[in-house]
Design a protein around this nucleic acid. Structure first.
Lengths: 242, 242
DNA sequence: AAGTGGTCTAGACCACGTA
DNA sequence: ACGTGGTCTAGACCACTTG
């Protein structure tokens, strides 16, 4: 199982890859407890310190979570993570408030060229497209267009009975077994279209902050494209560089 | 020096703080080699592993850099770091190109209320204000207004003989002993002013991406305010969430 | 009390850079 | 050849959670 000897890949890296694949292929699910460090070490025939080093790096990657006295768990998507990790809009005092969402549309379509390219799908593949307006706290501030590969989100549109939740990443994880682990964002300044203007109660041509986000799984598979157009009059996009 | 015993702060944290302060107060300068792990361990009366753990975290914080076979060094500000760490503008193919800069003005003034607040200075303190246009590669794309506390950057404006370099953070470090370690950014969409429009060769009112960055030292002291207004027609702000 | 992760040690050997 | 950081081990003890 593990290869050892001169010039080979370090054991802790091999263990890290092994644990990552257990999470990535669904053998271990979000919230599951994983075997203790000592048991993993016995099982793999290495010392506890080596397992520990592998786990430490996965904790830094937000793949696993440690709790002293309890054990090590596969990370969960909770509101806290959505808010402080993936949501970057704050008011001008620097406070983050998760906006409420009103879904305008949720339907199945053929992917546009743009969507297909961003999600690395063959042209014309079926996708779900969700449009929603998000308000902070009363004022409509963000228009989001979300695109998902239909294949991975079977019958998403039929779930319309049960309203789509505000924090979609939790839904993806719980209902579809898809965990969003990382994302790439591109930001631009654009002009509000006629529809943007109407929904956000602004004049046509008002500058909006457009965020194009591609969200990826642990295996770097793109699963969601999200285009957000934000009124940045009373809010801004916040980023910290460490 | 180090405290030990039940309920006290872990040794590796104390060592981390100790090493951090040596860098923060200038005892060790950027580029300096620090004592080897084994020597630090002997000096501090702990094992190599404990020193190692402290150093590992500082390397993750970009405070120190390890080089196998050579030693451990205080991190330097080089072009690579400026480009891949603090510079987030890329063209629409995703390539980053460091723009060239043309300085328009560099003068000493009283801080505006906004500048004083962002730099945590008393109202009316003297500051240097630099204005420059940055072009990628031929096309003027970004207008930057940079504000620095005059106190920390003595006679900056007199350096006008020697042109201001393109990568300012290297200058801060080499000429003024100030190392930028982290930054907070706020992004908004704004309208191009008359002057913006002229400098960027656009129409008045064109949406621009405005980035307000406050750059901090290792000790979290704000030292630079930088407001960048970017034409995002052929470029964008790129951010990765891991 | 038992089991988990968290800290710390002492020592072995490897990989790399320099002289 | 020597000194550096990088990996790995075996074992001790602490801090915390649970039964």
């Amino acid at each position: 199982m593990l290869t050892t000897g001169k010039g080979s890949i370090p054991l802790y890296i091999q263990i890290k890859d092994l644990l990552t694949s257990k999470v990535g292929n669904g053998e271990w699910l979000p919230g599951d407890i994983i075997p203790s460090e000592i048991n993993l070490a016995l099982e793999l025939g290495v010392s506890q310190g080596t397992v520990r080093k592998a786990i430490t790096e996965l904790v830094e990657n937000n793949v696993l979570t440690r709790q002293q006295g309890r054990g090590t768990f596969v990370s969960n998507h909770n509101i806290h993570r959505a808010l402080f990790y993936f949501f970057h809009i704050a008011d001008n005092k620097g406070h983050k408030v998760l906006p409420v969402s009103r879904v305008l549309k949720c339907h199945r379509k053929q992917a546009s060229k743009f969507e297909a390219q961003k999600l690395q799908l063959p042209a014309g593949t079926d996708v779900f497209r969700i449009e929603r307006v998000r308000s902070i706290p009363e004022k409509p501030t963000i228009i989001e267009t979300i695109t998902l590969a239909a294949e991975s989100f079977f019958d998403l549109d039929k779930e319309g009975n049960r309203e789509l939740p505000n924090t979609l990443y939790e839904l993806y994880e719980k209902e579809f077994g898809i965990t969003i682990h990382s994302a790439d964002e591109q930001l631009r300044a654009i002009r509000a279209s006629k529809q943007d203007a109407k929904l956000l109660n602004l004049e046509v041509g008002t500058p909006l902050l457009e965020i194009q986000r591609v969200a990826l799984t642990l295996n770097k598979i793109p699963v969601e494209l999200r285009v957000s157009r934000c009124n940045t009059h009373q809010h801004h996009y916040q980023n910290s560089i460490f």
